[in-house]
Design a protein around this nucleic acid. Structure first.
Lengths: 120, 120
DNA sequence: TCAATTATTCAATATCTATTGAAGGATTGA
DNA sequence: TCAATCCTTCAATAGATATTGAATAATTGA
């Protein structure tokens, strides 16, 4: 993830509705959710409003879409989210482990089941 | 870090100049840098422009300031940066370790000297 | 093919954001 | 105290962003 991509990702996540969408889609998993279903989860937001935010997120690379019948299914891009976390760690913590150390420590409580496969 | 704080932080980091400032201040360390010196590092940006961005970052909690003589010294808030990384991991990876696992794996290469103290 | 369903695109509008240049406040050294 | 230094605040402006409602496109089932 380069600077431009990080800026786009930060911009995308700086809007309440979009942050909620990303969260929802991460929890939804790889199967994703249809645009309409996402809109309902956003307090019944209008379809055009959803399209606006979803295309913003997709442009930023944080979500991806596929068509299934009449529906467009959106799903979170784990690669992009992971890349953004790495960007923050790499570009903002370089030489200053006091920034990322607490984050990693906290992580052991959150993703514990996965720590082994991360070789940490 | 709550949702509102995360939104403010993402918003603050979504602007090129501000992202560069944060990076510069993290590298500068706890001593920080004077507003004027930061401005020079930003291709000689005007002082009012610097004030605008620095106060934006301070409002978002990503930097803090203190007066020293005629200068205002800005420094990065490691707590806030760490909190933002944790926010991304916690709120976006919950139940989906495939997001944060690569990030943690990558981290072992970046902050290796600090891994021990993180109990990881 | 036609109507219904699902979602995007477009135009208009209101609001927010970033930049500039001028003015003002705080601090220091002479 | 006075001028110089350092920085912030303010007003004006241009440009970006979010929302709404109407129009359009793609797909399906009858």
């Amino acid at each position: 993830m380069n600077d431009k991509q990080a800026l786009d990702a930060f911009s995308a996540l700086s809007q309440e509705t979009r942050l909620r969408i990303v969260r929802l889609l991460v929890q939804a998993g790889p199967d994703g959710m249809a645009a309409g279903a996402i809109g309902e989860a956003m307090d019944g937001a209008s379809s055009s409003r959803m399209s606006f935010h979803l295309s913003h997120l997709e442009h930023a690379g944080l979500v991806q879409s596929r068509r299934e019948g009449r529906s467009i299914i959106y799903s979170a891009s784990y690669t992009a989210l992971s890349g953004l976390i790495q960007f923050l760690m790499r570009d903002c913590c370089q030489g200053h482990p006091e920034v990322c150390t607490p984050a990693v420590a906290a992580l052991t409580c959150i993703c514990e089941p996965a720590m082994d496969s991360a070789h940490v």
